[in-house]
Simulated assay, not measured.
Amino acid sequence: MTKVTTIPKIYIRRTIPEKYLDKMIALGAELIIDPWQYGDPEPPISEDISNCNIVLTLGLTDSLSILQDAPNIQWVQSLSVGLDALLHEEVKNSEIIITNTKGCTSVPIAEHTIAMIAGLARGIPFMIRNQLHNRWAPTPITDLAGSTLGIIGYGEIGKQIAKRAKSLDMFVIGCKKRPSFLSDNAPADLIVGLDQIDDVITKSDFLILALPSTPDTYQLINQEKLAKMKENSFLINIGRGNTIVEEELIHLLKEKKIAGAALDVFEVEPLPKEHPLWELENIIISPHNAFFSPNTIDRYMEVFLENIQRFKDGKELINVVDKQLGY
């Protein structure tokens, strides 16, 4: 009996290196490409995409308004782990399969987070500002050894952060929706449920937010939660910007109710030039690039190419998202 395969007809909404386009074609794929750069307006559809069955895009920003022109889409591969724009009711209630790049960015994000922890502990924001003003002045310093690191959203990224934090002699508490028993080689010292989030916030010298964007996490970190932080503690967000009520965080930072923060994600991106966060002295701002490394696109494409072959063969795809949970 002849094996039946599905021809991948892919609508690509990002800029992809030529070598990977060639590999897609080698797998028998047909391609239509309309590059859409992050921060730019959505580009118009340049060709007929009515026969496309796959979309390669950025789920963080793409709401799939193209579905009316592409009724045969079966699978969407997001090049972001976050699916903030993508997971609206039409998509959630459809039969479209969503996959993301979970696991591809865990190590770079963990390395970025450790850099932020060390930078805040050694007073790097103050040093940089003093340097820019030719000012020789002492800076506040905090020890990492013996301090407590709380990770709210203890998934794959959280585990990679914990692994590195333990090498710095930090005590690590993981906080997750579905806590599990520690295995012998688990990097965290303690794993608790989200019902104990207040206790984790109270104990943490460094509080890491690594949460996805869901209705349950929207503005979870509000004034009530922030007020539970120690005055000498630091907040680092590498999850989603809408997890925090920004104006309430700004108030605490201005009033020195917490020692500082490092933010990679924001409610509005790019962060507007007039935003008050830019003016704060006890903060590190990065432009939503904690995930990035020189090997990022290679990791993404390895997953996508494997999934194309699986799609052709009718096999289960890698990194399928639970559309109702949002991750």
Score class of each variant (00 low, 15 high):
A110N: 06
E111V: 06
H112E: 05
I114Q: 04
A115N: 12
A115L: 08
M116P: 00
M116S: 08
A118C: 12
G119K: 03
G119A: 07
L120D: 08
L120A: 02
P125L: 11
R129D: 11
L132H: 10
N134R: 13
N134D: 14
R135C: 06
W136K: 14
P140Q: 03
T142E: 13
D143I: 00
D143R: 12
A145L: 09
G146I: 10
T148R: 02
T148N: 05
L149K: 00
L149N: 03
L149G: 00
I152Y: 12
I152R: 00
Y154D: 04
I157M: 14
I157V: 15
K159R: 15
Q160I: 04
Q160S: 09
K166F: 02
K166I: 02
S167L: 12
D169G: 00
M170G: 05
M170Q: 03
M170F: 03
F171T: 04
G174M: 03
K177I: 02
S180Q: 15
F181D: 13
S183F: 01
N185S: 14
P187R: 00
V192W: 10
L194K: 02
D195P: 05
D195R: 04
D198L: 00
V200I: 11
I201G: 04
T202N: 03
L207Q: 08
L207G: 01
I208M: 12
